[in-house]
Design a protein around this nucleic acid. Structure first.
Lengths: 204, 204, 204, 204
DNA sequence: GATGAATGAGTGTTCATTCAT
DNA sequence: CATGAATGAACACTCATTCAT
C-alpha cells in the first residue's frame, strides 16, 4: 500500500454515517409499508426520519435505492434467521417453530406488506428486480442446503428435489405475507394448516 | 320495487355500455400489468383502449374503480374455473391439470403481475382491500367446498380442515404468481415440486 | 381521400388554440427577457400568461419547446422584415432605415436580451441549437439574396461575397443586441457609426 | 495607511491563495463554457477543480463572484492583447492579424460561449452587469485610443468617431463569438469577409 | 485552511379528475 | 355519449449556501 496522503479537513465518521443511513432506511420501511412505494413521498420519508429531504439524498441516491437497500438488508436478516433456525437437528420441529415466529410477527407489524410492495415494484423496475431476484435466489439456496442436511439426517423424504422444495416453501411464505397484509390470516387456523402441509409435504 | 318512471330521451343500450366497459377494463388490465397501478396513467389506459380520458370516466368513476372491477371479474373467472375444474371425480388429477394450465399461462402473459399489484394496492386503499378480501374469501369457500367433496369421495385425507387447506392452496398460488412475475419460475421444476407437495399434502 | 369518419365529441377550435399558444408564447418571451431562460420558472410564465402550469404544458411539451417556438416565430418575423425592407431599389437607404428601426426598438423593449439568452441556451441544448442554427442560416440566405440584387443594381460593390457579407451584418446585429441588452448603446453615436460602417463596407 | 496591527497566528500566504483562486477560476471557466452558468453547479466546479465545495466558498463568496472575477480577468487579458497588438505602426495589418488569432482560437476552445453566457447573465444580475459594462467600457477606451493613434498615423480615416468605431468593432467581435459558439463560423469565409469590412470600414 | 454534513427553497413536469361543448 | 380543455396538488430530485469539525 502506498502511504496514504495526509487527509485534510474533517474526517469521515463512518459509524455515524451508517447509523443515520439505517435510521433513514427504517423510516422508509415504515412509510412504504404504510403508504406503499409510490404513494410514500420522499418528503414523507424524510419527515418520518426527522431529516431534510436533501439529507436523505446524501445517503441514498434515489427512492429506488431505498428499496434495494431494504431488500439487501432483508436478505441478510433472512439468511441469518435460516442459518440459526436450522443449525441443529430436528428440522421439522424447527420449521414449525419458524412458522410460529412468522405468524406471531404478522399480528404486530406491517412488514409483510413491504414484501408484496417490493415484489410489485420489482416488476417494473429493473434494478429492484435484480436485487430481489438475487435475494430470492440466495434464500432458496440456503433453504435447499438445509433441506439436504435434513434429508441426510433422515428427517425429510430423500427423493424430494431440494431446490424445488425450497421454491414452494418460499411461495407459501410469500403467499402468507400477502394474506397477512390483507388481514385475512387467522392465526390458529394458519398454524394448524401450515404445520400439516409442511409435515406431510416434507417428512420422510 | 315500484314501476320505473317512464324514461325520457334515447334509451340506454346496456349491452353496448357493458361491452365498452369490458373493452376499457381489458386495456387497463394490460396497462396495470405492464406499468403497475400507480405508473399507469389514465391517459395511458385511455390511449390503449382507444377512447378519450373523459370517456373512461363515464364508465368508471375513478382509477380505483378499475381495480375493483378487475378484482370482481377475476373472481367470477376463478370461480368458474374452479367449478369446472372440480366438476367430476379425480380431484387430485384435476388439481394437477390446473397447475399445468397455470404454469403454461405464466410463460405467456403478465397477468400474474396484476395479482401482486392488486394486493399491494389493497394494502393502502380500503375499497380495494374490501373487494379483494371478499374475492379471496369466496374463492376459499369454493375451494373448501371442492375439498369437502373430495374428502367424501375418499380422495383427500378426511381429517384435513377444508378452509385451512384451501388457504394454503391460495397462498401457494399467490406466491407462485409473484415468482412468475419476477421471471423466477422454472416450468419443469415447478411442475414436479408442486405436484409433489399437492399430492403429499392432500391425498388420503 | 377516404371519407373521414364522423367525428364524435367536441370539435377542436384550431383558432382558439393558436391564439392561446401565441398568448402563452408572448408571456414566456417577457419572462425570459426579464429573468433569463433558466431563472424564469414555468410557474412564472404561467402566471404571466394567466393560465395554469398544467395548461401551458398542453400547448408546449417543455420549456425548451417554448424557446424553439420563439426562435421560429422570430425567424418568420425577421424574414418578413427583410423581405419588406429590401423590396425595392435604394438598398443602402433601406438598410439605414432598418438600423434606425432597430435602434429605436432597443430603447423600448427588452427583446434584445432574448436573442442573447437564446444563443446562450443553444450552446448547451442541442434541439435549441439546431433551431437557432437553422434560423440564422435562413436569415443569412435572405440577406445574401438582397445583397446580390443590390449588387446587380450597382448599389453594392460587386466583388463582395454575398454570404460572407451577410454574415458580418448578422454579427453586427447580434453584437448590437448584446450591448443594447446591457444598456450600453448610445442611440446617436450608434446611428452614426453603424451608418458609416455599412456605407463604407458595402457601397460600390 | 497607518501601520497594520501585528498579525496573530499563521501568516497568510498570499501567493498560495492567489494561485488556488486562479485554479478554481479556471475550472469554473471550463464548467461555465461547457454547461452554462446556471447549469454548472458549484459541485461540478469544485469537482473539476479538485477541491471541496466549501473550499470554493473560501475563495469566492458566491457563484456570481466567479463570473465577476472572470470578467475582470478577461478584461485584463484583453487590454494586454490590445496594447500589444497595436503597439507599433501598421494598424490595419495588426488588426488583420488579431482577427486571424481569434478565428483560429474559435476552432479549438469553447471560450467564446463564455462571453455570450456572461452577457446573458449580466442582463439579470446587477453586479455582473456592472462588471461587464465597466469592462466593455475600458475595452472601448483602449480601442478608441488605438484608433486615434492610427488616425494620426494616417492609417485610418480621420473623420471617423473613435468611440463609435470602437463600438462597432466590439459588436462585430461579440457577434462573432456567438456564431462561433453555435459552430456556424466558416474560418475561410469569415477571414475574407471580416478583413474586407475592416479595411473598407477603417482605411483612410 | 479544508472538509463533510446539512438544509430551505425551489425546479420542471405529471396526474387524476372535472367541466363545457 | 364522447371529446377537448383546464387545473390544483403533488413529486422526485437539485442547488447554492452555511456550519461544525
Amino acid at each position: 500500500m502506498p502511504d496514504t496522503p495526509p487527509r485534510r479537513g474533517r474526517p469521515v465518521d463512518h459509524q455515524a454515517r451508517a447509523e443515520r443511513a439505517a435510521h433513514i432506511l427504517a423510516a422508509a420501511r415504515r412509510c412504504f409499508a404504510r403508504s406503499g412505494f409510490h404513494a410514500a413521498s420522499t418528503a414523507e420519508i424524510s419527515a418520518e426520519a426527522g431529516v431534510s429531504v436533501a439529507n436523505l439524498y446524501q445517503y441514498f441516491p434515489s427512492k429506488e435505492a431505498l428499496v434495494i437497500a431494504m431488500t439487501e438488508a432483508d436478505l441478510r436478516a433472512d439468511l441469518a434467521l435460516i442459518a440459526q433456525a436450522f443449525a441443529g437437528p430436528g428440522f421439522l420441529d424447527r420449521l414449525a417453530g419458524l412458522i410460529e415466529t412468522i405468524i406471531e410477527a404478522a399480528r404486530h407489524d406491517q412488514e409483510f406488506r413491504l414484501r408484496v410492495e417490493i415484489f410489485a415494484e420489482a416488476f417494473h423496475n429493473e434494478p429492484v428486480r435484480q436485487a430481489l431476484a438475487r435475494a430470492e435466489g440466495q434464500l432458496q439456496d440456503a433453504l435447499a442446503q438445509a433441506i439436504v442436511a435434513a434429508q441426510r439426517a433422515g428427517e425429510v423424504a430423500p427423493h424430494l428435489d431440494p431446490h424445488g422444495t425450497a421454491a414452494w416453501l418460499q411461495m407459501l411464505a410469500d403467499g402468507f405475507y400477502g394474506r397477512a397484509g390483507l388481514g385475512l390470516v387467522d392465526a390458529e387456523a394458519s398454524r394448524t394448516a401450515l404445520r400439516e402441509v409442511l409435515l406431510r409435504g416434507l417428512s420422510a
